[in-house]
Amino acid sequence: MQLDTAILIGLLFGVGIYLIQQRSFARILFGFLILSNAANLFVLSMSGRPDGKRSPIVDQYTQPSVDPLPQALILTAIVIGFGVAAYVVFLLYRLFLEQKSANAHDLFNQVEEEEGTE
């Protein structure tokens, strides 16, 4: 049982989701970053309790090592998350440039009209 890790992951998910629902772009961005790291931590915790195990580097097999696969998975996920985060920064910045506002509430509460003309 990894209660401490589980609580930390739950906390991170909660904080991430809370921040995504905020109005300021900066908070939304941090929300996304925390959320993707919470997911990464969740996958990492799937390799089981690391107590008394050595890191998975091939040398002498004297003591059992932790499962290396979740680490390999989150390595990929971190890189992908980094790429997507870069895109989020770009999109939020472009929204800021177009709308002259860094407030999601202002952005989506404008009077909506369907755009039909070119």
């Binding site: 995504i20 996958v43 998975l73 992908i80």
Partner: peptide, 29 residues
């Protein structure tokens, strides 16, 4: 310029979806 904000909900929901997918992959493993 005006319509680009509609890409944001697409991005946001897929970001959350990807995080859940990653958790699902971890759980499956």
């Amino acid at each position: 310029g005006r319509s680009i904000k509609h890409a944001y909900p697409y991005l946001a929901i897929n970001f959350v979806g990807s995080a859940l997918f990653l958790c699902g992959a971890g759980l499956a493993y």
